[in-house]
Structure formats: C-alpha cells, structure tokens
Design a protein around this nucleic acid. Structure first.
Lengths: 203, 203
DNA sequence: TAACTTTTTGACCAATTGGTAAAGCTACGA
DNA sequence: TCGTAGCTTTACCAATTGGTCAAAAAGTTA
C-alpha cells in the first residue's frame, strides 16, 4: 500500500474505537495503567476482549492513544490565553476555563494526574516537547505583563502551578470535596478562585 | 489467649514489618492498589513473598495499615493550627508546614492522592469520621477570625482546599514541576505561596 | 445472489497473580 | 546440649492476566 493512503475508517470502526476509548478512560482514570485489565475495558465497552484487540494492538496502545488525545485538550485553554488581551482578565478567564474543565472532564483530569504521579512513563516526551515550550512562552508573557506594571510581581511559574492545582483539585479530589462540602462546589469555587487570584495579581 | 494480652512484637518483627511497610509505600504510591503486586513489595523489601504474608494477612491489610498510619500524619498540621493564635500567622504557618510535608513525605502524599482519585474505597470511613469533624471545626475557627475582622472574608472551605492543593501539588506533580522548572522548587514555592495567601487574607 | 471484505467470536496459551502448606532453619533459654 | 518458639523458604495452586488464532458471522459490492 502506498504511503499516506490509509483508507478512512468505516462507520463501525469509528463507533467501536470511540466506544473502547471511552470505556478505557473510565477504567484507566480510576485504576491507572497497571491496575486496569483488558477484561474491565471490554466489559465497560460492551465488546469482547479479542474484539478490543482487533481495534487496538494492546493495552498500551489504548493508553497511549488516550494520553495523546488528552494532551491537546489539556493545553488548549493555555494556548487561548492572549498576550495582547488585558492581563488580569486573561488570567482570570484562564482560571475559569480550567475550573470548567475540572467539572466537565474529570476523568481526563484524573488520567493525567495518575500518569504524572507514576512519573509520566508514557508522557515525558510530550511534556518536554509539547508542554514545556508553551509553558515557557506563557510564563514570558506573564513576566512581560508584570514588567509593564500591569500585574503584581509574582513568580509566573508558581502562578501557573497554583492555577493548575487549585482548579484540578475539584476533579481529582472530588470524593474528598464531596465528603467535606456536600452539594456542588463549582459556583462557590469559581467565586473563591477569582477572589484568590484577583487579590494576588492586582498591582 | 486472654484479651488485650498480645505480646509485644520482637525486634525482628519490628524491623521486618517496617521494612515491608516502607517497601509497600514505595510501590503503592506509584502504582495504586490494583497495580501493585506482592512480588514487587517483596522484592523492594528484600524478603520472600511468603515471608511478607507471615507478617501481613494479605495485600489489603498492608494497604489498610499504610492508610491508617497516614491519616494521623496527614491531619497533624491541621490539628496544630491554634484557634487562639494570630490568624494570619497561624494560616501561613499551616501553609508552610503542608509544603514541608510535600517535600519530606512525597510518597505519603501520592498514596493519599491515589486513594482519593479511586473514590477512597478504603478510606471513606476515615474521611467521614476523622477528617470531616476536624475540617468543620477548623473552618469554624477561620470563620470566627473573619467575623472578628482579623481576616479578609473568604469561604473557609475553599481556602483550606486551596492550601491543600497548592502544597500537595509539589509532591504529586513533582515530575511535571521538575520538567518545567528544573532544580528544587521548594524555596521559591514557599515564597510564592506565602505571598498568595497573605494577599488573599490580609483584611 | 455470489464473492468478497470486514467484524466478531470461542477456544486456547503462557505468564503472572494472590495466596497456602509444610518442611527447614535459627535464636535462645533451660 | 537440647527443645522449642519464632522465622524463612521451597514447592505448589487456582484464578486472572495480556494476548493469539482460526473459524464463524455479518456486511458490502458486483
């Protein structure tokens, strides 16, 4: 077969691949890579194990596929942060976008957390090649804003870390949050985080 | 054997039990409960698998023992927060104690994170019975401080969440932090977090 | 409908898993 | 020195694991 001529996937292929990936996300995000079995994925997807292996060459390929997909989604809000916008507005909008993601994509957040906790064995290259340059670029933007006197002086790197950690906390530690708060923390969390970062960053 | 007469553990028992628990902490904190095997623990501890099972009745008992030990260590800094001290000082001291724990006990932090991410299947009772009352008590203290005008008005619950998340981030996401920062983040993180919470809480 | 391709399945496999049983070893007091 | 309680190991098991394979079934197309 000539290069670049992979025929487009059939309807069945599309459906089953996404069925599998969705099921795998459920399981991997809770039990991690080693703790997840193909049988669990198969049952969650409503397919037989050999059928799973018809679409993916193995457990690892499923995991890697999820991680690759995740990377884009994950970086997107940071990409959107506009160097030409109003600094405080841009950062607060970023905080809120990340908080929305914690609410809307908790499985993805946990999958990512699990992978990093493990030492990112399958994601280190992505972090180096994908995240690092973007992180440096955006930190430089924030530093510029600070130098221009538009933000209070803070370490941009730790600022970004604290935005990540405070927002993702509501996805990754959802169980704990629910035990301690009850009800939906989202609205009160948004209000609190806006307050937190406004106070920090207002010059 | 009469009740309450368990004879005190021998020197060998002490040594091997703690050898096992230390090894298990290494493995569980990275791979989670399901992802960890007794063989991994045995090898890390330098003991044979049946020997492990001479000291613990099974994988689950090792995990539960670690979780129980952890609970005390984990709550300790919060317990120490003194309702009669200076509000801002107390809270900033708490932040720094938590940050020190993230540096000194990263395995414990990851073990806890993994358990919560999984939905706390073996810790829910502990959260309800141990953490919740303490959390409520300390939130009430913070609220009192706010009512007395000694702190800026914030939601105490989210304040505590943000202290937990920002500090534990440096343990749980250590791999990511190292990729993005290089070097030891501890000192600059301390400086940043003190700034963050000072700004938020100063009336 | 016949010929073909894609999808699905049941049977199977070697390796790994948590765990057991019993024999053997070791430290130590009498 | 011997006995014995405590510790360790060897050999083993049944269940589960990730994965294979050939054949059956289900679509597709001529």
């Amino acid at each position: 077969m000539p290069e670049g001529t992979e025929k487009k996937p059939s309807r069945i292929q599309m459906r089953n691949r996404s069925l599998i990936l969705d099921a795998a996300l459920d399981v991997f995000s809770v039990h991690g890579f080693r703790g997840t079995t193909l049988d669990q994925i198969a049952e969650a997807a409503g397919l037989s194990k050999p059928n799973i292996l018809y679409y993916f060459s193995g457990k690892e390929e499923i995991h890697v596929t999820l991680l690759n997909q995740l990377m884009e989604t994950w970086l997107d809000p940071l990409v959107e942060m506009d160097a030409d916008g109003d600094p405080l507005e841009e950062l607060l909008a970023y905080v809120q976008r990340k908080l929305d993601m914690a609410r809307d994509l908790p499985r993805e957040s946990r999958l990512f957390a699990g992978e990093i906790i493990q030492g990112a064995p399958r994601m280190l290259p992505h972090l180096e090649a994908g995240l690092k340059p973007l992180f440096d670029e955006k930190c430089a933007v924030i530093q510029r804003w600070i130098n221009e006197g538009k933000l209070a002086p803070v370490d941009p790197r730790h600022l970004v870390f604290s935005i990540w950690s405070t927002t993702q906390h509501y996805a990754d530690f959802d169980t704990q949050v629910r035990v301690l708060m009850g009800g939906d923390p989202h609205d009160s969390a948004r209000q609190y985080l806006v307050q937190l970062f406004s106070r920090l960053l207002t010059p």
